[in-house]
Amino acid sequence: MTTEVTATRTAHAGKFLSFSIGEEEYGLEILKVQEINGMMPITRVPRTPEWVRGVINLRGRVIPVVDLRLKFGLESIPDTERTCIIVVQLSRDDRTLVMGIVVDEVSEVLNLVDEQIEPAPNLGSDTAADFVIGVGKVDEQGFVLLLDIDAVLGSEEIEVVAAASV
């Protein structure tokens, strides 16, 4: 797995979709989110990394789905009825790329102001930390790690996938 990915962006005030993976809460800029779907049949693509769950039929389009849990190096768990596929739109070379990410549970939409956002702490070489662009402080829930989803599913990763699949 790559270690070169560093979050070059910092989070700005705005709306974030929060979701949980394991014990942790993550946030995703709402503008990146196209839709949220419940679990649906996923066709596994052979000879791809474990964290590529496969492809789904999104109303006639075949889009890839990445399991964020596996991507972050966590244990795989069976899907529950709370497991969701968040369909995100990524920008890549002037194109829009649509991809699904599997998360344990979608929580809510947070409205964060600048005072609630702190820069990403240095968490060492933890994979997930590379993609964190800030930490949002929410009273009741504590902290939400704000993700740079473009970096999480970024091109550096894709090269790794391509190399692994030959």
Binding site: P41, V45, P46, R47, V52, N57, V62, L97, L153
Partner: peptide, 25 residues
Amino acid sequence: SLSEPVQDTVGVAGGAILSDGNVAL
């Protein structure tokens, strides 16, 4: 056609949606 990150998977030329709504490679 498949997009990143599964687009260049060797041995897979693309996807198709079967009549049951599932994707087959």
